[in-house]
Design a protein around this nucleic acid. Structure first.
Lengths: 131, 131
DNA sequence: GGACATCTACGACGGGCGTCGTTGACTCTT
DNA sequence: AAGAGTCAACGACGCCCGTCGTAGATGTCC
């Protein structure tokens, strides 16, 4: 198999990944500035650089160094990462029960009617596919 | 407000909490042994003790020291903890979208027909209540 | 009452994470 | 060509987490 066992992104790394997923390939400076816009926390430039270097080493981002100013790009998909993280939490806190997770997700949000309808649609689609 | 801002349990702490939630008030030894049954990881006795002491300090477990052998009990509810953890992950990885979380939860599990029915039931109940 | 087991308490450490200062290379402007 | 700005690289630090060794107190058994 040997599929993939890329290390889970840490909190700070995930924040950076979210920028890359949204903006596409970016320089350190771009990531740094966009991060400022998103986060309340103020992260230094060199911190972001270091994080991106670490992430490159781990293989969760890819770096283009053809130009002097390097360009970074996410090397793992958002969906896959979400799945891995949710799977992990589900196992650790919900005894592996997807039902419990959904229950909590519903109970927590002032889940808008729109959201509820969307979820129902998902459910239908999923059920049909399964059958 | 001032409700509560108890620190989030760490991974190892959460594993212990799960034992306490399931078994109710327990001694260190009991937790230690039950943990062995659940986990693949082999944790030393003093490690569990230390963890429980830390957790007591943080206020996420409560300790009865009336007897020589202390008895520990979870001080935060399972449901609340699940909610907090899921909320955190939802914000960090799903942009706060409950819908996305549900979508991932569904897509990941070979969600049994039984589970799907249960989820649908939850959805109905939730929708009715909201209306 | 001595030997042994059980339990809590204390302190230490190794690793990882997030943080940043500093340095040296490169580039641009004037 | 000098000075100012930008950038990647490196190393260090403080913190927290999980781990455990060891000590000391308390109980138990012959």
């Amino acid at each position: 198999m040997t599929t993939h066992a890329l290390p889970q992104p840490t909190r700070a790394e995930l924040a950076i990944l979210r920028v890359l997923w949204k903006q596409g390939p970016s320089t350190v400076r771009q990531v740094h500035e966009l991060l400022r816009g998103t986060q309340d926390k103020d992260t230094g430039y060199t911190t972001v650089l270091k994080l991106l270097q670490n992430m490159t080493e781990k293989g969760i981002v890819q770096r283009d160094e053809s130009e002097r100013t390097h360009v970074y790009e996410a090397a793992i998909s958002e969906t896959r990462t979400q799945r891995d993280l949710l799977r992990d939490l589900m196992d650790r806190a919900f005894g592996g029960s997807a039902t419990s997770v959904v229950a909590q997700a519903l109970s927590m949000k002032r889940a808008s009617a729109e959201e509820l309808a969307e979820i129902r649609r998902l459910l239908d689609a999923h059920e049909k596919r399964g059958k």
